[in-house]
């Protein structure tokens, strides 16, 4: 089956699916307790609600609400007029986490930018020319290392891929840390939990013969079609934007979240992997796939086009109707 067909099936049957899911869960076919089945059923009804009211619209509203100064009790700097004279001077309002006060405090910088200056470029300039005390993570400057995740005007974004002039609203850009992660300093957040969740799903190809895996002079057989099944999910750069955008991660810290789950799917779909159904069992838990509520914000913010939302729903199907999503074929060593 082609990737696009899977997507159509998955999304297309999202409306019918909850009913089926609720029934199956109640009938205790998913191997979980009856009480939990009822719970899941209710969660799914909620998801149907979400769908009826338009997940896309809710997603937008949700994203727009991020870094709300009033709600978070942020100390704001005194407003001053933007320096006149330079058409390309933007005002950066940067919400910085202070360890001492455990609060976000605003610093304001006016920066001259060019047509192609990225938000990261402007921040690096601020650090070099205006305020060496500001801290943020960055490295590759080309959207592949995953360091510079932050919120730009409330939306989780990679700063190096975000054009400054295009992001400005009335000459102002608001920058903040990703609040879905614990805060360390300024725009720097703590990733320990994030990495822990990623590691917990055994993110590597499981093979029975280790020696063969490390030494063999031949490749495992794999067709282009088989590669196509996991390739879209292997672009994850571990930047953390999806976790920041996910409403469930923000309310239930134990939820594995879209990053780890999308990677569980990536390895599950790889025909070279020999862990098979055990991979699904690992995430067949309340804090695994079943806490996902289809908000879809993860897929919306992913800068690399990974679609964790589809991955998670596909796994739910696979758990309930084995072999529904993919025909599992073992990968043998090339002769």
């Amino acid at each position: 089956m082609k990737e696009s067909q899977i997507a159509i099936l998955t999304y297309g049957s999202m409306i019918g699916a909850p009913v089926l899911l609720a029934l199956l869960a109640l009938l205790n076919l998913s191997g979980l307790g009856t009480l939990y089945g009822i719970y899941t059923g209710l969660r799914i009804l909620l998801a149907v609600d979400l769908l009826l009211f338009g997940a896309i619209g809710i997603r937008e509203i949700y994203l727009g609400k991020r870094v709300n100064p009033i709600k978070l009790g942020i100390k704001t700097a005194e407003e001053q007029p933007i320096r006149n004279g330079e058409a390309d001077t933007l005002r950066f309002r940067v919400y910085r986490f202070k360890e001492e006060s455990k609060r976000l405090e605003e610093s304001v910088y006016d920066v001259a930018v060019g047509k192609y200056t990225s938000v990261l470029g402007a921040l690096v300039k601020i650090k070099a020319e205006k305020d060496p005390t500001i801290s943020m993570r960055y490295s590759c400057n080309m959207g592949i290392c995953g360091s510079c995740g932050m919120t730009v005007n409330g939306k989780p974004s990679l700063a190096c891929e975000t054009n400054a002039l295009k992001s400005a609203r009335n000459g102002i850009i608001t920058i903040g840390p990703m609040l879905g992660h614990p805060l360390l300093k300024d725009l720097v957040t703590d990733f320990d939990d994030f990495f822990g969740k990623h590691e917990s799903i055994s993110p590597h190809l499981e093979r029975e013969d280790r020696k063969e895996k490390y030494e063999a002079p031949k490749e495992y057989a794999q067709t282009r079609e088989q590669i196509g099944r996991f390739l879209p999910y292997s672009y994850c750069i571990m930047c953390g934007l999806c976790m920041d955008a996910c409403p469930v991660v923000n309310t239930n810290p134990a939820f594995l979240g879209p990053q780890a789950l999308s990677q569980a799917y990536r390895y599950y779909m790889d025909s070279r992997d020999q862990m098979g159904e055990r991979r699904l069992q690992m995430v067949n838990t309340k804090d695994g796939v079943w806490d996902c509520e289809y908000a879809g914000t993860c897929s919306e913010v992913c800068p690399k086009g990974v679609d964790p939302a589809t991955a998670i729903q596909s796994m739910k199907f696979e758990m309930l109707v084995p072999k529904f999503v993919m025909k599992k074929e073992g990968a043998e060593m090339e002769k």
Binding site: L205, Y214, E219, Y220, L231
Partner: peptide, 9 residues
């Protein structure tokens, strides 16, 4: 081939 075995597409 080692990289093929550990997952590179």
């Amino acid at each position: 081939r080692f990289f093929e075995h550990i997952g590179v597409p």
